[in-house]
Amino acid sequence: MSKNKNSRRDFLKLGLLAGGTLVTGSMIKTALSETPENDPGSNIKVLTPDGKLVEISKASIKAGKEYVSPKASHQGIPHRKFVMVIDLSRCKNARKCVEACKVGHHLPSDHEWMKVYLMQDSSKQSPYWFPRPCFHCDSPMCASVCPVGATYKRSDGIVLIDSGRCIGCKFCMTGCPYSVRVFNWKDPEVSEEDKKVKYSPETGIPQVEGTVGKCIFCADLLRKNELPRCVQACPMGVIFFGDIIEDTVTNGTDTIPFSQLVKDRSAFRYLEQLGTEPSVYYLPPTERLFPFESGLDDLDKKVLARYKNTPYMKNQKKLKNDK
């Protein structure tokens, strides 16, 4: 009975994912009818010399446990210091990083941990698209001002939030100069499935009302040696990610020494003068792969509306009206 219920709920959820197309309904239902109690995917099958299939848990092969408690999450991954390099010359506002982040962290529908800004430094300068994750600063204002230690920096450079500790004073939000942090102003619409999930600061699931959330460099995936979701999702290979100690960054396809990339492309950090020492570097938008305007094509009306007040869009509108 309960199993039935389960699959039905999953079916409904998947139905929604499929964009509400009824046609796909029964197929997914059948595919899911085999749903076992535990995800067998967490195990790997090994064929022994005598031809027998043996199950080995993934955890025993890969370093790190599946669940990381809030207390354990204070410890960074040993001998690592993560860094992100964002190539502004490749970004065309495809917004796949934003979507992958939202889906991957089960965020409420109107929350964005990764944002893509339309930037124009001054009226004579050219506009560009500016993806903005959390900068995981080495001198994080947010972690300094937190009165209860709910947000903290780890040895591997990642700044996390423990939603179980956060009192919601929002001091960190005013402390962060990059507007990275988002607040759960209302009930975060946690799905029934997520309600059963044991909370870990490394996944951020489920979000809690009255607490702060932000990009966590997908700390859960890093434990499994997997790239953050935004890096994996980006079709243009805009976002490079890696470990600064082993001096290697990758966008999934290209793997380059970090020092070489930074040197060759004159990398900079946003608002360096503030002294927050971000872990995110930007490559300037020179020799672009796509014209800036292509980032405005095929945009959802709602998404387009957010750029309405930028000087660039106002100017475009003016030019259009003049014609």
């Binding site: 001002v145 500790r165 009192i167 919601g168 004073c169 607040f183 809690v208 009302e209 009255g210």
Partner: peptide
């Protein structure tokens, strides 16, 4: 009124961080 989780107000005393101006 400004605090999102009033139920955790005691954390200010249970887990104080002296570096925070709120403390």
């Amino acid at each position: 009124f400004c605090i999102g989780r009033l139920d955790r107000l005691g954390y200010l005393i249970l887990y104080p961080r002296i570096q925070s101006p709120i403390t």
